[in-house]
Amino acid sequence: MKEKICFTLNNKYLSIDADLSMRLIDFLRDELRLTGTKEGCSQGECGACTVIIDGKTANSCLVLLGQIEGAHITTIEGLGDENNIHPIQQAFIEEGAVQCGYCIPGMVLSAKALLDKNCGPDKEYIKRAISGNLCRCTGYKKIEKAIQRASEKMKEAENDD
């Protein structure tokens, strides 16, 4: 039962035919092979499948494809590329905030949604922003530090402009 749907994915306008009752995560992974979005629990507990929908984070395991008609979606593939890595991604590398890495795409996107709205968040804001992203390897400290570092770098870059 395929139907038409249009939306913008990582700044690219898409118009496709698909089963609108399929979960957004399945569409991203199985249809588009954008496998940076991870599935960890399938019930909105772990945040590994986090994407940004119109500036707000969402668990893509709890969104149906049909619900994103006309929306702007950002997945981890829509951030930096090989030669032009996003400052949040760079900060995660530099702070050693990455271990097994499975939570990281979701974590980076939660950080992005936060920093897009609030360029100098304090620790409590950072903690709240990533409270829906579980990491089983780290103690979150380095992740918090990385987000702090990214916010400083992004502010510096803004001031340079």
């Binding site: 945040g47 984070t57 939660s110 829906g132 992203n133």
Partner: peptide
């Protein structure tokens, strides 16, 4: 509202 789920859930 802030105690429900986490940010991702509150957003939806």
């Amino acid at each position: 509202a802030m105690m429900i789920g986490a940010v991702q859930i509150q957003n939806r």
